[in-house]
Design a protein around this nucleic acid. Structure first.
Lengths: 360, 360
DNA sequence: TTGAAAGCGCTAACAT
DNA sequence: ATGTTAGCGCTTTCAA
């Protein structure tokens, strides 16, 4: 028989409340169970006693019997990328009403880390939101068998997915560039493990075909500003007139990198990004980019996951696809007509990373 | 007696492994316990059987007896602010070696939400990292009594804290502005619930005293770009020559907002920010700002929290303070000498938020 | 509506 | 080094 004398600094348990209220533990349990199905005065009294004792039901113990933790995990590849902040906010909005807690897990662009942490968290959460996962399809399917899973920014057969309309976005970007007289687009690739990266490139190939625009690809680069700066260097070898970058961070890095080398955007080369992060509007020139409703994506995915957790089958037909739009800013312009273009010689080098910082 | 015939789709338990390996459950338990203290061949055999059965120890059940979940929570007020991404990364670095999982919780600048979610998570994690918490001191102390807590960007007596050197940062900013001939600094305040906001303003008061610079404060505003833009409008009434903003996001909003109204930065007004986020280097003109080692802050705080969880007392003397430095860029310049300065009339209005977006 | 009893999967004494 | 016995705090049959 457990000794239920409560040490002063420990949380009150169901037994403490039961003793205090002169009822059985199961009555206490019922007083706190879901469809407040017990409105008897006993239950009310129990709740008051519980309140007085500062009793809080222990979710871990509850989970052990119900196998429901009321937590969902949102796994993202890079917390540094503002796109995911939007998704997080969307997910929170959807789960705030229901009493689910969303925990965020940053996989740091690492396939291995992502698997490891999911593995560990597996039994601690009721379901997973996998945003831009870097894992293999098979790994994801495996997880999806053990727990409800909704995948974002990626399409996988037999797993519920929500994606943005990448082909359309790329297409719009290519059309825009085409209208400006560009007949050649260079795609600056992001991580190979990124599904979005793959489909964007394939979509560009296709769009190029239809629009009679030549396309090529360089990379992969890290999907960061640094990656874009590095790409800028590589671009020197055979300078293009139009570039589509995997994402905005790379595009911004590109603009800066090109700037350091005396290449003018959009005078010499037009740059288009993907995502429409805040910085796209801050950089000079403003970045033309493909915008997607990430907030809505996060909340839609979460709502779907929650219904699955509640027992719904999980919609595994076609992925849910969200519309995109092209936001035109100043980083794209008419193609400079002459092949030998009025370009300042590529002389200047990148400045010291931290210009004359005053150490304090 | 529990019936340990395992349903096909359920995870293997310790009992399944025990039965299969012909040992007692506790032997299995020991084979997976911490200081792999059991290297006997039995243990090895057990592990192999477990492997074959796909057994994974259930952290929830384990936690129920050990009261250790091996998870720590990092609570931040705004996932949208890149500063916290740095802190998150730092925290991850520190916890990745030890087998702790860091879960991120975004409190969305809401005192209430923050408390609620901490309350709920309380028994699910071994400790809390509270970054720039918006809760009251007393609420934080209350939590700190129940679980190990380390506070970031805030000093609270009797709770371990790590902060950046705000007074010094403000002082350096004020000196810098003073050297440029400014004799008046306007502080653009952030959230009142922010401890950093308070100390920055007080530090500015003090620095102003010593350096014989007049100071005033406007606000509070939301600590976002939008907040900064709003502050820009308010600034019109009595335009200053030098501004110190609560953080970089506000400073950038300020620069943009002023720009829309035809006010030149730094020609007409010098702007200094706080944090040195990436965007500070992207905006034109580059933002002069006080940089702090947020990554280091995150990892230091985490390391400390982990030692507390392992039983260490928790260093509650003076808070640990991290050095800052002033990064000078182009947003600050010599004060324009004439009182009626060469300022373009404040005519232009803010552009439409989304310039001619092509809907796709 | 309430109580009694049996576990959820694991670990921690205590024996052996 | 291994087995035995009791629970961790809660929910869930099954009776009353």
């Amino acid at each position: 028989m457990p000794d239920h004398t409560r040490p002063p600094d420990k949380r009150a348990t169901i037994y403490d409340v039961a003793a205090e209220a002169n009822v059985s533990p199961s009555t206490v349990s019922r007083a706190f169970s879901k469809p407040s199905r017990v409105n008897s005065e006993t239950a009310e009294r129990v709740r008051q006693v519980a309140e007085r004792l500062g009793y809080r039901t222990n979710p871990l113990a509850r989970a052990l019997t119900t196998s429901r933790t009321h937590m969902i995990a949102l796994v993202i590849p890079d917390i540094t990328n503002p796109v995911y902040a939007e998704i997080v906010r969307g997910a929170q909005e959807a789960s705030i009403g229901g009493e689910y807690t969303t925990v965020l897990i940053d996989a740091q662009e690492s396939d291995r880390l992502e698997r490891a942490v999911i593995e560990r968290t597996m039994s601690t959460v009721d379901g997973f939101l996998l945003a831009s996962s870097r894992m293999s399809d098979s790994a994801i399917r495996m997880f999806a068998k053990q727990r409800p899973v909704v995948v974002l920014n990626r399409a996988i057969a037999d797993v519920p997915c929500v994606v943005t309309d990448n082909p359309r976005g790329v297409r719009r970007a290519a059309e825009h560039l085409g209208e400006l007289g560009h007949d050649h687009i260079t795609y600056v690739a992001g991580p190979e493990a990124s599904w979005a990266n793959g489909i964007r490139w394939r979509s560009l190939l296709e769009a190029g075909m239809e629009l009679e625009i030549k396309v090529r690809k360089i990379g992969p680069f890290s999907p960061t500003m640094e990656g874009g700066e590095r790409a800028a260097e590589e671009l020197c070898a055979d300078p293009p007139t139009a570039v589509l970058a995997f994402n905005d961070q790379m595009a911004i890095g590109l603009i800066r990198g090109l700037g350091w080398m005396g290449v003018n955007v959009p005078g010499d080369v037009s740059v288009v990004g993907f995502d429409n992060i805040l910085a796209a509007d801050i950089v000079t020139p403003g970045l033309t980019t493909v915008a997607a409703p990430f907030y809505a994506e996060g909340s839609a995915a979460t709502r779907h996951l929650l219904t699955m957790i509640e027992g719904a089958p999980g919609h595994t037909g076609r992925p849910m696809v969200l519309p995109v739009r092209l936001v035109v800013r100043r980083s794209t312009a008419e193609r400079n007509p002459s092949p030998g273009r009025t370009r300042t010689p590529w002389l200047r080098r990148r400045p010291a990373p931290d210009p004359a910082p005053h150490l304090s």
